[in-house]
């Protein structure tokens, strides 16, 4: 059942990816701005012959649909062709170099968000309208209503500059960069058993990660809180209490597990937003990841690079939702995958 479900969902990914790539393709090609002109930039006297040569080199002289077909064919086997703006490098190389940074930041923000949101939501639900609940609810509302770029700036000023607790830019103290295994500095430093490097990587992730996690954590916390309040009122929880089970078990084993069921899909949805927020946060913090790469690639009309990045976002989004559905089914025996 599971294998078929996942397989089916992965098949559904294909039309989505084709659709996404087609939108990017049309947007990039139908709006003015010529990659060749960008490539030549301030270059001096350029002959039309030179422009034509480059144009045919990159296949830009062919009809649009032919270009799109060729792109699709190559992309299907993982070949996005050469990058227009990163001279002499393939799109795959450029993306592969940036991908670990963004993956690390996103996973960190995700983990941070969950670690803040679930305990806060649970504690808040235990005494609704109590002091903690009020504080947490207000904080969550602020988190939802705060523009990420502004929060990022404020965090930089307060924690980076005034208090000097946390670094503002970069991914790790360069003297501590661990041997490359996954490209995720936190993971690599753990693999190398290097605590100092791990700590440094964490500190560098803290500010952009917090700015990125804020809205997601806020939404998730509210969801956990409200579904916990609902669950705690249910008969079986009351029954478990009546049986004399310790309160910790009542909450941890019975209530929380059921309260998490509706939370899973919210988490997936919010993580999708996390991904899109990543472009702004990476720009604010000058973080060397995919988001900033995308912003730069668009400015340089680097079509293939933009395509690749958008596809990665799309794939991540779809996989996230798939994962949420599977997890949802795992937590909730009533749900059958179909």
């Amino acid at each position: 059942m599971w294998g078929r479900f996942v397989g089916h969902r992965l098949l559904q990914l294909i039309p989505v990816l084709i659709g996404v790539s087609f939108i990017v393709f049309l947007t990039m090609h139908l709006t003015p701005g010529d990659p060749i002109e960008h490539m030549l930039g301030q270059a001096g006297r350029i002959t039309q012959a030179q422009i034509d040569e480059l144009r045919s080199h990159y296949g830009l002289d062919r009809p649009l649909l032919v270009q799109y077909g060729l792109f699709l064919g190559n992309a299907a086997v993982g070949d996005f062709g050469p990058s227009y703006s990163h001279q002499g490098r393939s799109v795959s190389q450029v993306v592969a170099e940036r991908f670990p940074a963004t993956l690390e930041l996103t996973l960190f923000a995700f983990a941070l968000g969950i670690m803040l949101a679930i305990p806060a939501g649970v504690v808040a639900s235990l005494r609704p309208h109590g002091r903690f609940d009020r504080t947490a609810t207000v904080t969550a509302l602020l988190g939802i209503s705060m523009p990420g770029f502004w929060l990022g700036i404020m965090l930089m000023i307060v924690f980076g500059l005034r208090l000097q607790w946390l670094p503002i830019s970069g991914r790790i103290d360069l003297a501590l960069v661990p041997q490359y295994v996954t490209g995720l500095h936190t993971v690599d430093s753990l693999l190398a058993g290097d605590g100092a490097a791990f700590w440094s990587a964490l500190k560098h992730l803290a500010l952009p990660g917090l700015a990125m996690a804020a809205p997601m954590a806020a939404m998730v916390m509210r969801m956990v809180r409200s579904s916990m309040i609902g669950v705690l009122g249910q008969d079986y929880v009351q029954f478990a209490r009546a049986k004399g089970l310790p309160e910790r078990d009542v909450i941890g084993k019975h209530a929380l597990r059921n309260a998490l069921i509706p939370t899973v899909n919210i988490v997936a949805l919010q993580t999708g937003l996390l991904l899109s927020g990543n472009m702004i946060i990476e720009t604010v913090f000058q973080y060397p990841g995919l988001g900033k790469l995308a912003v730069d690639a668009i400015a340089a009309a680097d079509y293939p690079l933009v395509q690749a990045v958008v596809l990665i976002y799309a794939v991540s989004y779809v996989l996230l939702n798939l994962a949420a559905d599977v997890l949802h089914a795992a937590l909730d025996p009533r749900v059958r995958l179909a």
């Binding site: 086997v77 993982g78 795959s92 993306v95 592969a96 993956l103 003297a175 490359y180 991540s316 994962a323």
Partner: peptide
């Protein structure tokens, strides 16, 4: 599987970096 699938999507480009040394 998500991340590894993604890396797979980028066909064999990660491997090039394996030689990168810490500074």
């Amino acid at each position: 599987a998500g991340p590894s699938l993604l890396t797979g999507l980028l066909a064999g480009c990660g491997r090039r970096q394996a030689g990168q040394r810490a500074l």
